[in-house]
Computed example of a mutant assay.
Amino acid sequence: MSETPADPPATKPPSSIAAAAFVSSFDRFAVSPLLVLIATDLGASLTQSLAVASLYYLAYGLSQPVWGVLSDRFGRVRLMRLTLVAAAIAGLASALAPGLITLIIARAFAGAFYGAIVPTSLTYVGDTVAEKHRQPALADLMAAIAIGTALATAASGLIADWLDWRIVFAVPAVLAVVCCFGLNGLREIRSDGGGGMLRTLWSAISHRWVLLVAGLAFVEGAAVLGVLTLMAPALQAQGVGAGPAGLATAAYGLGVIVTSRMIRFLSARLTMPRLMALGGSTTVIGYAVVAVHVSIPTIFIAAALLGATWSFLHSSLQTWSTSVLPEARGTVVSLFAGCLFGGSALGAAAGGAIGAAAQWTVLFASTAAVMLVLTVVTVLSRRAYERRSG
Rank of each mutant, 00 (worst) to 15 (best):
V227T: 09
V178P: 05
W162K: 14
L138G: 01
C179N: 04
S25G: 13
F341S: 03
F113Q: 05
E188K: 05
G330V: 10
A10N: 07
F364N: 06
H293S: 15
A53P: 08
Q48C: 03
G157L: 02
L211P: 03
A250K: 08
A251P: 12
Y124G: 00
V373L: 10
L275A: 01
G148S: 09
G286E: 02
S71R: 09
R134I: 05
A110Y: 04
W165I: 08
G239P: 00
G148I: 02
K132S: 12
G99V: 13
T47Q: 15
P65D: 13
L335I: 14
L151N: 07
T367I: 12
I205C: 09
E3V: 15
A106R: 06
A308W: 11
L103E: 01
F364C: 06
L346R: 11
F181I: 14
A173M: 06
V23A: 01
A6E: 15
L201F: 14
A87H: 02
H293D: 15
A204M: 06
A357F: 10
T298K: 01
L270S: 02
I38V: 15
A234D: 05
K132C: 02
T11L: 03
A173P: 10
A44H: 03
F109R: 05
S16M: 14
G195D: 08
V256K: 08
Y114L: 13
R78I: 12
A248Y: 07
V292E: 06
G148A: 08
M197H: 12
P297D: 13
P9S: 15
S16H: 14
A154F: 11
L158D: 03
S311G: 07
W202Q: 14
Y124W: 04
V31I: 15
N184C: 12
A19Q: 09
H314K: 11
A97M: 08
S334F: 07
V85S: 04
G351R: 03
L305D: 02
V376Y: 14
D27M: 10
G243C: 09
A10Q: 12
D7Y: 09
S381C: 15
A110Q: 08
L50T: 12
L100P: 03
A20M: 08
P172M: 06
L70G: 05
I167M: 08
Q236C: 07
L216Q: 02
A277L: 10
S323V: 15
A150K: 05
A173R: 04
F181T: 11
T4S: 14
F22P: 01
A18H: 06
Q318R: 07
A10R: 13
T149E: 10
Y124V: 01
G255Q: 07
A222H: 07
M262K: 06
R329E: 00
S311A: 11
A110T: 05
K12Q: 03
V174A: 13
G194M: 11
L122C: 02
S311E: 01
D27H: 12
W162S: 14
G342D: 05
V125R: 04
L42C: 04
A357M: 15
